[in-house]
Simulated assay, not measured.
Amino acid sequence: MDWSSVQLRSLVELRRRGTVTAVASALGYTPGAVSQQLGALERSAGVPLLRRVGRRVELTDAGLALAGHAQRILDIEAAATAELEHSAGRIAGELQMALFATAVAEILPAMLARVGETHPDLVVRSRELVVDDVYDAVASGVVDLAVGLEYPDVPIRRDPSLRVVLLYRERFSLAVPAGSLPWDGPVSLARTGPPLGWILPPEDTHYGLAIRTVCRRAGIEPELRHEVVDTAVSLALVEAGIGISTVTDLMLRLRPSRFDVLPLVERFERHIVAVVRASAEHRPNVAAVVEVLRDLARD
């Protein structure tokens, strides 16, 4: 049989995600392109791999069986890539990487400079993704490595195919319009009721769910005034006196802002992590970049 890695990965991701649209989003293709890859794989296999159920497609028994083998083939391919990198005896070639917005602004420039100094033959290609999508990007093989976030208050279900490496921890503080609270010491979330409305990300994001979880544990229901995804926009709204939000040091470096930053009594933190596939964690190129990220975190 003649098939490609893209075809096999499309099949594996269809088993994982359930819809062609979700597969296309994960792999960075159009739904039509994914359908073409799956159709070509089905023709090569010579047996039906998909069946239409309403407006969706699902895997047949043969499709499910081949998806299991496809995952093992992709793992073997990753192991072969690692072996070739080891045999080269040096860090060279290309590495695909994904980062969330704050990491792109604050971590990527320093990381690329350090990689350029220590591994001049390695080319790192990066893409910015929504932070909640970086795990899927690694799991699907779209990228070799990602910098993502974890919130201890809302643990992400660990995919056994992934390895998550803690780089460093950031504790959240409270960002409030200048002079809006009559103290400058630690403040409890329980003291943030009206008239201080909240600027928050949507509840269906890990960050949005985490801050709501911490607030409810403190005994309050945050009064949502503005639902905002972009951190820089949230900071601008706080500066304009529109409401309050939570911030970390890394978030504060996104833009110069004039507002009060108060320590929180409640412990609310996030972990900045490196995410790699288990089958690729020992690839020299991947391990080298993870070590650079660890060095930057220590610095």
Rank of each mutant, 00 (worst) to 15 (best):
S245W: 00
L189I: 13
V143K: 04
A105S: 10
L235W: 01
V275D: 00
L209R: 04
V143N: 02
A175Q: 02
R90Q: 10
R216P: 05
V147S: 14
F100S: 05
L237V: 04
A175W: 02
P120W: 09
V228T: 03
R171Q: 14
L254E: 01
R125E: 10
V134G: 04
V165W: 10
V261E: 01
T118F: 11
Y135R: 06
G185C: 13
L129H: 03
V176E: 00
P160I: 15
L252H: 02
T118G: 13
L27A: 08
V275Y: 01
A22H: 02
I199M: 01
S10Y: 09
G219M: 00
G89W: 07
V123I: 09
A105D: 07
D133E: 14
R225I: 03
L11K: 05
D121L: 15
E150F: 10
P31E: 04
V130K: 02
A62W: 05
A113F: 13
M97C: 11
A45G: 12
L264T: 01
D2N: 12
T205I: 05
I220V: 08
G185V: 07
L262S: 01
R43C: 12
A218N: 01
V165E: 08
W198C: 09
S4Q: 11
Y29N: 06
R127I: 14
L293P: 12
V20Y: 08
S180Q: 04
T205Y: 01
L252G: 00
R277V: 10
T246R: 00
E117Q: 11
R255P: 03
R171T: 15
R15K: 14
M97E: 07
E291I: 15
R169Q: 10
V228I: 08
T231P: 06
L200S: 04
A26M: 07
G116W: 08
R216F: 04
G241T: 00
D2Q: 06
V286N: 05
V261N: 02
R267M: 02
H226Q: 10
A70R: 03
V6N: 11
L296C: 12
S5F: 10
G63D: 06
H282S: 15
L99F: 14
A26Y: 02
S173E: 06
T205Q: 00
R56H: 09
V123L: 12
V143L: 06
L235D: 00
V164C: 06
R212E: 02
L264K: 00
S10G: 13
A92Q: 15
D61E: 15
L167G: 07
D299T: 14
L41H: 06
A274M: 07
R52T: 13
V176T: 07
A79E: 09
L189Q: 01
G28P: 03
V238D: 00
R15N: 14
